[in-house]
Design a protein around this nucleic acid. Structure first.
Lengths: 366, 366
DNA sequence: CTGAAAGCGCTAACAG
DNA sequence: CTGTTAGCGCTTTCAG
């Protein structure tokens, strides 16, 4: 039977322990300022009755929910080809759990869902939100900031204009996409490659745009014909690689914007009878294990600590929730190293970021 | 400023519309039995004030939360190499959203978390739970059934004993692992292969065990040396394939328990100079696109509709929640087809399952 | 059909 | 230190 044996209330515990509700409440919430013998008696009563506080009642008065929403917009089914998401969630979950917060997952499936999400967020069901906005033109972030819920973004939002002046700075955490890209290309250059091509991701995503910028940082004004726009998918990688090979038969290296794309490129390279890395060296981005380690040859790639990103996002949000009035942007140390405390990226502008470092992982492809 | 402009209450709306709180409440909840002109006035007031009901207050009285927990135990980091999880979640999310329910995600990271999860569930924060229990010895399912929360499992639970007599039947949805395995092996046999090996998954997981059973169903009492136990990972697949090749140099086909394993096997096969499918035909399981389509050659595999599994789990749970007293097991049609309504698997036993069909997807490897 | 009143279970002043 | 007293915002009988 799902008879929901009527759960005991504070009242019941109070009666059993022979104290008032207030005292029980105090004990349950930490027990400060209650004399030891009483604390003990209450604890016992709680135990015996199997009392568990009713969160709804508590929220009603505290206006706190100890819950944060994680919003993931997945216009395409990008997410489902991508462990990225799972890892991120894992990091978030760990951090949230450590602070007794619940994770409410909001997956959106297109415009229709936007209104729903906005409403939910505005409805004050959660204390804050962690949002993954992928595209430049995504209206969701705007809606969310409008909802007046403390928010931290995953990945640099596409609209770094001075908006949201009244919502506080835009907080986000991201990987050092640009720096990582630079490392990748420099590595290729150090190998003696000179005709280094780049297969981009969808350029309406900041991560892809930033990687392209990194590539350009080191390639300077190299032949623009060496850049082929793609979409982060293996199929897209194949297509781009073919184009590139047709246009630039003499290329000797490829930096692909992510591992999936690199895998596609690798396939085309083999199909054309080119050896990797002898004829063409390849490096990817992400270090998505199931992909990077399984390609032939295994992929040299730029690793980003995705789980850590998630953890940091949560930490940032939680910290902000703890400083009631604070809209964030509190000063702090400048460190950007993962395990250190959450650092603000900008002094006090309309934007505060935490940018995680990336590392080059050498395997056989370059 | 996160000044949380004090959200309007029912009271405020009532005042504005010139009616009582009760009337507003009625309108907000469907508006039955309220005369049209009033409904209109209230709607307008709601609109103007931007009123959003306070869920906490509502839950306090209705004892409904319109939220369900999704519990995912991830002893190993299996999840993160696996889009499986993301797809499942997607299906669940869609169904939940369609019924205005929220998804609270509970990720566990080992024993310590079990208590936390159990407490949360017992705490009545959610109306029900969807649980993924992977291992036979996982204590979580037991704890959860103990918590007295309506639950639906993902995948056949490992303990099909008659427990939980007082919690109602154990509901779960699963893929037809056994049938799918049979199809795979039969396909191989139809290709004229006779020395068909099987690389299993971790046999403490029902999915792996069921697939092995399927293999045996058609192979009968074939050489037991043709079965190598593995762990669903590419590395494990390589190891198993090597063993198999050493022991049974004459094998002419391999049925791998999942695509990842198959990918590993493929690599070893190539490394040994064996051609696929000419010398050895290979079929996998899952049809995990990023893997199955990217192997060389592309993998023939058994597809399971993972998203649909998620959707069905949610549907099953929601349906159960709607029949208050009901502990599930209500009679219904016998269909097992995806898009049809939720069917009960067993007449009225201690277990009720929905088993989704699988389909063989032919690519180049077999 | 609509309004008035009584809580849901808990926390937060405020007294004692 | 501990108990009393008010509500938090909403739904729900019960009258009218």
């Amino acid at each position: 039977m799902t008879d929901t044996a009527p759960r005991p209330t504070l009242e019941a515990v109070a009666a059993r322990a022979g104290v008032s509700r207030a005292t029980v409440s105090r004990v349950v919430n930490g027990g400060d300022g209650v004399r030891e013998p009483l604390v003990e008696r209450v604890r016992q009563a709680v135990e015996e009755l199997g009392y568990v506080p009713n969160q709804a009642a508590r929220s009603l008065v505290t206006r706190r929910h100890d819950a944060v929403a994680v919003v993931i917009a997945e216009p395409e089914a990008r997410v489902f080809a991508d462990p990225f998401f799972a890892l991120q969630l894992r990091g978030i979950s760990k951090e949230l759990t450590a602070h007794d917060n619940q994770l409410v997952l909001l997956l959106t499936e297109g415009r229709d869902d936007h209104a729903r999400v906005a409403r939910y967020l505005a409805g004050g069901h959660v204390d804050g939100a962690l949002v993954f906005s992928l595209h430049l033109d995504d209206p969701l972030p705007g809606l969310i900031q409008g909802a007046g819920v403390p928010t931290v973004f995953g990945g640099r939002p596409g609209w770094s204009d001075g908006r949201a002046a009244d919502t506080g700075p835009t907080l986000y955490v991201d990987s050092d996409n640009r720096g990582g890209a630079r490392d990748a290309v420099r590595h290729l250059a150090a190998l003696g490659r000179t005709r280094i091509a780049h297969i981009t991701g969808p350029l309406d995503q900041t991560s892809a745009a930033d990687r392209l910028d990194g590539y350009r940082d080191v390639m300077g004004d190299a032949d623009p014909g060496l850049v082929a726009e793609s979409d982060f998918t293996p199929a897209g990688g194949e297509r781009a690689m073919r184009d590139l090979l047709d246009r630039q038969p003499d290329l000797d290296a490829v930096f692909a914007a992510n591992d999936l794309t690199a895998a596609g490129a690798l396939r085309v390279l083999r199909e054309r009878g080119l050896r990797v890395p002898e004829d063409v060296a390849v490096v990817g981005f992400d270090d998505m294990l199931p992909v990077a380690e399984q390609t032939d040859p295994p992929l040299t790639t730029v690793r980003q600590d995705i789980e850590e990103m998630g953890r940091l996002m949560a930490r940032l949000l939680l910290r902000r929730l703890d400083r009631p009035g604070g809209t964030g942007s509190g000063p702090g140390p400048h460190a950007t190293a993962p395990e250190q405390d959450v650092p603000p990226g900008e002094p006090d502008g309309a934007e505060a970021a935490v940018v995680l470092p990336t590392t080059l992982v050498r395997r056989a492809s370059a």
